[in-house]
């Protein structure tokens, strides 16, 4: 009986002296020193010519280049994702012709360098000077010359998009496979067709697995668009090149371009976090916190610790 009453009294909160981590302080000091040295050298070194960088950072030519980079990224990722979903579903089809075709596509487009593919599409007119829309051996409805249809921008978009499709196919396939078999069985037992099951049940749940690598691919694509500079599309890198080929401020303009690339990838990273959060719903009991919420929680916990120590 006596022990029971003792049990009911809540013991004091544990107040232990935390373990000291002298190593962390040393590491922090070294790191701070290195950062200071780097920043100092960048600020002192007149050759950086920060004024030039500031001047070109918001120039209209650079901004136009950045816009074109975004356009290329968005359109080629759109092509890549649409194609990737199609190829992945084909690859998993019981029809050997469909899965074989998908395998062949991935083999070709993943097996050759993007740069070569960009140059290939840029030079497609050498193979097919004219395109016509119609029925083979029958009437034609429309007629285009290759050079008017496949502008450098279109060539770059096609090359990047078709190449991306091959990678996205593998990502989507991995996502589809990750959804347990029981999900499609349950859908089938309710009378849902194969296509409806894929669209309503499997793909939405595959998203959780598909989104993180797709975010990666988008960020990677944003930078890969710089390759299109070889076919004279004035995206961000080529715009910078055009300027420094005249004023010889090569490093400064490359820094300008890099600042924009970094800014755009940062925005994408933040966006990816929120998209992941959206598609992660239902997979855990609590919604994952947003960056803003985490920041708030951290600040609050610091304040709480402070007040705890004050008491």
């Amino acid at each position: 009986m006596a022990t029971e009453t003792v049990d009911q009294v809540r013991p004091d909160e544990i107040k232990a002296i935390p373990v000291r981590h002298p190593g962390r302080w040393v590491a922090t000091a070294i790191l701070l020193f290195l950062v200071f040295a780097l920043v100092n050298s960048m600020a002192q070194n007149q050759r950086f010519e920060w004024g030039i960088i500031r001047h070109w950072l918001f120039s209209s030519r650079i901004l136009h280049g950045a816009v074109l980079t975004i356009e290329l990224t968005v359109t080629s990722m759109a092509i890549g994702i649409a194609l990737g979903v199609l190829l992945a579903v084909m690859r998993l089809s019981p029809n050997p012709l469909l899965s074989g075709a998908s395998w062949f596509y991935i083999w070709i487009f993943r097996g050759t360098p993007v740069l070569v593919q960009i140059l290939f599409w840029f030079n497609i007119a050498a193979l097919y000077p004219h395109f016509s829309l119609g029925i083979p051996l029958g009437p034609t409805f429309a007629h285009f010359s290759a050079t008017s249809l496949i502008t450098p921008f279109v060539a770059g978009m096609l090359a990047l998009g078709l190449n991306e499709g091959a990678y996205m196919a593998e990502i989507v396939r991995a996502g589809i496979i990750s959804v347990p078999e029981g999900q499609s069985q349950a859908a089938q037992s309710l009378g849902m067709s194969r296509l409806l099951t894929m669209r309503r049940i499997v793909l939405p749940q595959a998203m959780r697995v598909i989104i993180p690598p797709t975010g990666n691919e988008t960020i990677s694509m944003l930078k890969t668009t710089s390759l299109v500079s070889v076919i004279a599309v004035a995206e961000l890198t080529y715009s910078a090149q055009l300027i420094y080929s005249v004023n010889y401020r090569t490093i400064q303009l490359l820094i300008v371009a890099s600042i924009w690339y970094l800014a755009m990838t940062t925005v994408l990273t933040i966006g990816q976090h929120y998209v992941e959060r959206h598609f992660g719903r239902g997979s855990t009991r609590d919604m994952p916190v947003t960056a803003a919420q985490r920041l708030k929680a951290n600040l609050l916990s610091i304040r709480r610790e402070d007040s705890g120590q004050a008491r």
């Binding site: 029981g182 999900q183 069985q185 349950a186 749940q205 598609f279 239902g282 997979s283």
Partner: peptide, 10 residues
């Protein structure tokens, strides 16, 4: 089913 197989995203 034995393992329920509820659609997890719904």
């Amino acid at each position: 089913f034995q393992s329920f197989n509820l659609f997890g995203h719904m």
